[in-house]
Design a protein around this nucleic acid. Structure first.
Length: 809
DNA sequence: AAAGCAAGCTTTTTT
DNA sequence: AGCTTGCTTT
């Protein structure tokens, strides 16, 4: 008996069909990872394929790591030379070798979407590209989609033709591209697009990789976009041993450019493709699968399939409609407490899934209140935090210095008295002679318009970076980071930036510590740790990558993040029309019916995460963006026949939800379970948890709870006690603040003060920024003169004489 | 230069 | 509602 005998017949077919294109349509929970790993083992052990020739691509590092572990377990020898990686890291590895072939340096930096955004913002400002109809956000997604479709800036500009909107996007795109190139930086989309470019322009390099990767496997194929498709197509073009695994019903990343046609049309692109359907589910009970099937069958144009299981019916799917959002959270929390008490589940067997990150707050608050330990996935990314971005910018600058964005981020952080005006001068100079911002700082004494002290500060900054670079050569990465933090007094700086000094700064400090440990961990595990390598790793992690099931905690996350995971008990929160499906998709339903279909697939993903018990929850009324909204029950609930649901909305049973109908203000609702009127009152007072110690400041409590422990960027439920100890700290901080304030005012006294003005009403004056204008009015104030000037170009401005520094003409 | 304040936007999802 | 942003104020 071989390991392959444990597979079912369809799985076995998928494993044994090793050559040529293969499409595995793998329903949720049908054991696709198992198939993939066995397939790899089969290739190596039975077909004599060199592990070196195998490439397996996934979407997340977490998935890659899991696959790697499982492959290691069943492949006898050489499993370490199998290339298992995400799309992005695969491309980075290729580009680190060959970026110079397409006009980059090989040590390019990687921009996350925040970085792209700030670059674009500068551009939009400079060229006045933003408007009511065309917002920064639109431009950013337009560019991203263009890249997803392999359209570069020039092609986009050509295609834009006379269309004004597109012309402006094209302008932004062109500028954006040249800025990134100048900064030797690539964004996420570039990693793919540039690799494809590299392959297209350099057939010999492509051939080399084609020869290397003779057997290619792609997981989650339904979520590939067009560049990813092209990347794979090119790689597989020589041997065509391409095996893709996916489920069209789980395609949920269209907004990110994923093209569901890639999987639906696979057989058109590869007419001789071997197709296998895996429909037997090894995860969930039949009740859960029935619910999933009922929902997903409402989609059109899908590949027909239906999940089934050998296991029994199990418990029926539960449905609970609460009055309000907080009540929904309360229900979920108390239900979990019950599960735990009855010994039916550990915390780690439970997940709460929702459509939008904003929904996590209420649930978190309630969890803190009930003392339920939880991990929060997503939300504000660890690497998106200010203090982390600052330090990474230092590291990036030390590593390369070509990236102006990073240099400009830190040149005045902590404050060095280099203000916006000075930065502008330096930038202008750099632009003029086409050098980097950092280089311009080095030769700041050559910069016209820059005053003496600013010059000195810029040069000092450049020197400091030089010193840091020397450190890099002589000490470990961790020591380097520690030294940087110490020498720029970063922790002192952090203490000054948050005004609510009690918890915030402490949290930032913890994040800094966390970054240090991540650096240390990286150094530990890597054979040849480099700064570039660390920055790269950091740039390509997703929040979900850091989730491990070692901790006994309930997981809170969006439905998107949950793809690929499974739990005994799953709560789907916020099953309401306008929330899920979101009002955005409902608004565009007529013009874009695909949107709702994608939401339905998302519902399908959510439902099929559950192994034993699924609970669908919603609220009749909910606070959304500061407004009370009444939502009907989500269609994804009503698509499941009532008799298949156990409605527990009223504890004594018998109450059935009323269709998808929404309720109005003056509808009388459930006066027996607490009237909606009363709940409305609750909304006005924070979030309605009365006088509990946590409720005193529910949000602050939650924030404090979001800490970074155990090496992962996830929140954990913090005990509510935290407040008591640092009680005297705000006092000290407050005292310090007072001193500082006094210091500033003291300084102020010695400042310009009341000078005698050399101009009067009616005179023409010159302002450094606003140019020329006419003085309209001068009002004497206790400290200074308030001068009103009508500028020729900027209109009327009121300013203080001491700061305006007007010159009489 | 930096603090303080009003305005507007957001969040649907993220490698 | 909460957060970021830009403008005003000192």
């Amino acid at each position: 008996m071989s390991i392959y005998d444990t597979l079912n017949s369809e799985q076995k077919k998928a494993v044994l069909e090793t050559d040529g294109p293969v499409l595995i349509l793998a329903g949720a929970g049908s054991g696709k990872t198992r198939v993939l790993t066995h397939r790899i083992a089969y290739l190596i052990d039975e077909c004599g394929v060199n592990p070196w020739n195998i490439l397996a691509i996934t979407f997340t590092n977490k998935a890659a790591g899991e696959m790697r572990d499982r492959v290691d377990k069943i492949v006898g020898f050489g499993s370490e030379s199998i290339w298992v990686a995400t799309f992005h890291s695969t491309c980075v590895r290729i580009l680190r070798r060959y970026a110079d072939k397409i006009g980059y340096e090989n040590n390019f930096t990687i921009y996350d979407s925040d970085d792209s955004k700030s670059v674009l913002k500068d551009i939009c400002k400079r060229y006045q590209l933003e408007s009511q109809q065309l917002k920064l956000r639109n431009i950013q997604t337009a560019i991203s989609h263009a890249k997803d479709n392999c359209v570069d800036a020039h092609e986009y500009a050509t295609a834009a033709g006379t269309e004004y909107r597109k012309q402006r996007i094209a302008k932004a795109y062109l500028e954006y591209e040249s800025t990134l190139k100048k900064n030797n930086a690539m964004d996420f989309d570039d990693l793919l697009l540039n690799t494809v470019k590299l392959f297209r322009d350099n057939p010999e390099i492509l051939k080399q990789y084609q020869e290397r990767f003779r057997y290619i496997m792609v997981d989650e194929y339904q979520d590939t976009n067009n560049v990813q498709f092209e990347f794979i197509r090119l790689l597989a073009d020589r041997y065509k041993n391409l095996c893709v695994v996916g489920d069209d019903d789980q395609s949920i990343y269209r907004f990110r450019g994923a093209n569901i046609r890639n999987i639906l049309d696979f057989e058109k692109v590869y007419p001789n493709a071997f197709v296998v359907k895996l429909e037997q589910n090894y995860r969930s009970t039949q009740s859960i699968l029935d619910a999933a099937n009922c929902v997903i069958k409402n989609n059109f144009g899908r590949k027909e399939k239906a999940l089934w299981t050998d296991e029994g019916k199990g418990e029926p799917v539960r449905f609970k409609r609460c009055n309000t959002g907080p009540e929904e959270a309360e229900f979920i929390a108390s239900d979990i407490v019950k599960l735990k008490k009855q010994g039916r589940a550990d915390y780690k067997d439970i997940a709460v899934l929702y459509r939008t990150n904003a929904q996590s707050r209420l649930i978190e608050e309630r969890f803190v209140y009930e003392g339920i330990p939880y991990d929060l996935v997503g939300g504000v990314n660890f690497y998106g935090r200010r203090e982390i971005k600052d330090l990474l910018a230092y590291l990036k600058t030390i590593d390369s210095g070509a990236d102006d964005l990073s240099v400009r981020r830190i040149i005045n952080v902590p404050k060095r008295g280099i203000g916006a005006t000075s930065i502008e001068h330096v930038q202008n100079y750099a632009d003029k002679i086409n050098i980097s911002f950092l280089k311009a700082c080095e030769e700041a004494d050559m910069i016209p318009g820059l005053n003496k002290s600013a010059m000195a500060k810029c040069v000092a900054f450049a020197n400091m970076i030089r010193v840091f670079r020397a450190y890099e050569k002589e000490c470990t990465l961790e020591q380097l980071l520690q030294r940087v933090i110490r020498e720029i007094n970063y922790l002192d700086y952090l203490a000054t930036i948050d005004d609510n000094a009690d918890t915030e700064d402490n949290e930032r400090e913890q994040n800094v510590d966390e970054l240090i440990s991540k650096m240390a961990a990286y150094e530990e595990k890597e054979d040849e740790p480099t700064l570039t390598g660390f920055l790269e790793e950091v740039a390509l992690v997703a929040d979900i990558d850091n989730v491990s099931d070692d901790d006994d905690k309930v997981l809170l996350m969006t439905l998107h993040s949950a793809k690929g995971l499974e739990f005994d008990h799953v709560y789907l929160a916020g099953m309401e029309e306008n929330l899920f499906p979101s009002y955005m998709t409902l608004m565009n339903e007529d013009s874009d019916p695909e949107g709702v279909e994608e939401e339905r697939r998302l519902a399908y993903v959510g439902i099929t995460r559950a192994r034993k018990q699924l609970t669908l929850c919603c609220a009749k009324a909910r606070m959304t963006r500061g407004q009370l909204q009444y939502n009907g029950v989500s269609r994804f609930v009503t698509e499941i026949p009532r008799e298949m649901l156990n409605d527990i909305s009223v504890s004594d049973g018998g109450f059935l939800f009323d269709g998808g109908e929404s309720i109005n203000d003056d509808d009388d609702i459930d006066l027996d379970t607490g009237s909606i009127f009363k709940k409305k009152m609750d909304f006005s007072k924070s979030t309605g948890y009365g006088a509990s110690p946590v409720a005193k400041s529910p949000y602050a409590g939650t924030k404090a709870a979001v800490s970074y422990s155990g090496g992962r960027p996830v929140a954990k439920a913090a005990p509510a006690k935290k407040r008591a100890v640092p009680k005297d700290k705000p006092f000290i901080a407050g005292a310090a603040a007072t001193h500082k304030k006094a210091g500033i005012t003291g300084l102020k006294k010695g400042m310009p003060g009341m000078e005698i003005l050399d101009y009067g009403v009616g005179d023409r004056v010159l302002h450094v920024k606003y140019g020329t204008g006419v003085v309209k009015e001068i009002v004497k104030e206790p400290r200074d003169y308030k001068v009103t000037v009508d500028f020729d170009e900027f209109g009327q401005k009121i300013m203080f004489a001491a700061f305006a520094k007007l010159k009489k003409l």
